[in-house]
Amino acid sequence: MTGALFAQSLVLGVLLGGLYALLAAGLTLYFGVMRVVMIAHSAFLILAAYLAWYFHERTGIDPLLSLVVTVPLFFVVGYGMQRFLVSRLRPITLTTMSVLLTFAVALTIEGLLGFVWTGTQRRIQLGYSGTSIEVAGVSIAVVKLVAFGLAALSLGALYLILRRTSFGRALRATTQHPEAARLIGIDTDRVAGLGFGLGLATAAVGGTALALDYTIYPSLHWHWIGPLMAIIVVGGLGSIPGAAIAALLLGVAASLLQVPLGTTWAQTVFYLALFVTLMIRPQGFFGGRLAQRF
């Protein structure tokens, strides 16, 4: 691999890793707060991408503006989904049953997308779609930069919410010791609902970022959920920084391996990392103490 190609792949990997990081953060949030495995996370991601595409088709306005609608909408849907569906599962079998429940939700979303917009592949064409900028011999598509910026901003916002707000502290407390959280007066059911909403909001942002740069179709979510699940296990279930670090590293690795191995084989790096993690460090690599409890 030449130096230029390496640099190019590295940059692409970081940009892709940013998007993975945001989506994995949402996914690990559900697990941390509620022990829920949210298979439908990537289905909501594609739904948001479709909404961005449809918004652009209809209005001709930049799809980024669709975020004004999709982020609050997904937040409310997430809150409702937790309060009216997930919370009905029995605590003892919650984790297992949540796989089944959210699998069904994923299939439903996929079916609805196909029903409403058919299985045809869709792609947003923007004024700046083909534009790229050149930095030190590396050419970067503007849409990829915008998508990365969006992901980075959202991750930063998520970090601030969790670290600096009273709700964030309540959410972290609920993640780390649910019973103690209830005993200091935190309404853990409400926190779980809001946490779910927050997780789904990351899917809204991610979906819009995705729509800028990818061809979308209803079953695309299956390509995302596997790597995302692998990322949150490698990072340590429930750990947001862990998820972000693992996402960046694996995103870069997949991107670098694409040159010698091709797209399909490069994807296996996620599963390879998953196997290695489960074999030598099942609690994850960056999860810290909390993850060891699972």
């Binding site: 010791h177 103690a180 810290g288 103490r289 909390l290």
Partner: peptide, 8 residues
């Protein structure tokens, strides 16, 4: 048992 929030 232990009930501190360990990561805080």
């Amino acid at each position: 048992g232990h009930s501190v929030f360990p990561e805080m």
